[in-house]
Write a protein that binds this DNA or RNA. Structure first.
Lengths: 235, 235
DNA sequence: CCTCGATGCGGTACTCGGTGCCGGAAACAC
DNA sequence: GTGTTTCCGGCACCGAGTACCGCATCGAGG
């Protein structure tokens, strides 16, 4: 299950636990399956289950921890010249790629999370960590901006919502179509709402009180003024 | 605790359970307090606790269920002439008002949810229900709009994020300042990003293929075209 | 006044998720 | 061969949540 291309040399027992768990979850339901059932089918001790998964719910999302680490590294490797919004959109694409790598697995998991309340709640906590990671990145990028934290929180939430919109639509269709293309369209909606091509504001080098504005003649003055104010004004 | 002005004639035992629970939670922590401790302090049977609260976490958020019902009723009472974005912003203000009614209680609960992971996860599920309620409303309002569901999901997420931004800032300050004013400012940011004063598009009566556009001379043409396309185009 | 049914509360026993602890087996260094 | 580390299994235990039963109270009706 999943692309173990990154590391983890011998997760044999872990994989067998995941396989046994999903086999039972799909044939008799999540809540009707106890941890004892899983470890019995996998042929291991009960204590070993909780060594690899801190809770019963974690076995349903075995790859999110790795994906979150990938996203954190991706954002940490950003350059100051990158458009922050484009960067977080690309970061969201990482998550969609992870889902797209195993369509059948993702669709099966989606069925579970839709029916079982506890799993949906757990998924919310995972999504929240993604959103927090994106928000933290935007917050540092917009630290000197007026209402920078508010803007960071709202944009992060919007990116996550657009990503989930495309993801859920793809999952509901049973894994048909191109999920990457769908998420591109959804994220493009978010990008154009906050960083339209018409206005680009960048701080000048070695002088914090000066910004460079590149825009089109068709852009109305109030929008240019708002962007400049937001970029120059103290927090 | 809370304004029991709506209904529930005799929640005496319920209130005493809430009081006992918070007393113990604040003095020795949430996870260090068992349900037996709560019912012992309240002087009631253990079984009665789960009669009023389906889980131990529910006693921390005793008023959210009522607030969610209020929001649902508020949105159901909307008129077609209301701007949907303004409407959901007003709906979000309902939640902030509930928090503002009991500042000390809200701040105490905030301390708990910040430290205890399980409570934060539970709070996420509550917030998700608010966001879903707002999203469902916007979805029906924008059913005939191009990318209506995407727009509804993104706007709902942005409204929730802006509300939570103001709420958390107010809670972190210990309940000082005017939370309503803070949430107004945060929601104003969301409103101006999607429904700026410059462009207003409304469908004409009894003819779905005609819209009325009111805008200013300073608005660039591409923005007007995008709004008209979004309002006219089939899903 | 007595009876009957409904409702609300408490007690007991049970399931199951999750943790701490310990003992044993395998892998590895010297 | 011996000591050490690591991994695994078994056991006991805790606490949340549930099913079931028994009891008390209260109001309606004869």
């Amino acid at each position: 299950m999943g692309t173990a291309s990154t590391n983890s040399p011998k997760p044999a027992m872990r994989d067998s636990l995941i396989a046994a768990a999903f086999q039972l979850f799909l044939e008799r339901g999540y809540e009707q399956t106890t941890v004892d059932d899983i470890v019995t089918l996998a042929g291991v001790g009960r204590r070993s289950f909780f060594r690899y998964f801190p809770s019963k719910e974690d076995v349903v999302f075995p790859d999110h921890e790795q994906c979150l680490a990938d996203m954190t590294r991706f954002l940490a490797a950003s350059a100051d010249s990158d458009d922050p919004i484009v960067r977080v959109c690309d970061a969201a694409r990482l998550v969609m790629r992870m889902y797209a790598e195993n369509p059948t697995f993702s669709v099966q998991r989606y069925r579970l999370t839709r029916e079982v309340t506890g799993l949906r709640t757990y998924e919310l906590s995972v999504v929240w960590r993604y959103e927090k990671t994106l928000g933290d990145y935007l917050r540092t990028r917009w630290a000197d901006r007026r209402d920078g934290t508010l803007r960071a929180n709202v944009v992060a939430a919007a990116v996550v919502a657009a990503h989930n919109h495309a993801l859920r639509h793809w999952l509901r269709s049973g894994g048909e179509g191109d999920p990457l293309a769908e998420v591109d369209q959804a994220l493009e909606f978010v990008r154009t709402t906050w960083s339209p091509d018409a206005v680009a504001v960048a701080p000048a080098e070695e002088n914090e009180d000066v910004v460079v504005v590149i825009t089109k003649r068709s852009t109305p003055m109030w929008r240019v003024v708002r962007e400049v104010e937001s970029s120059l004004g103290e927090n």
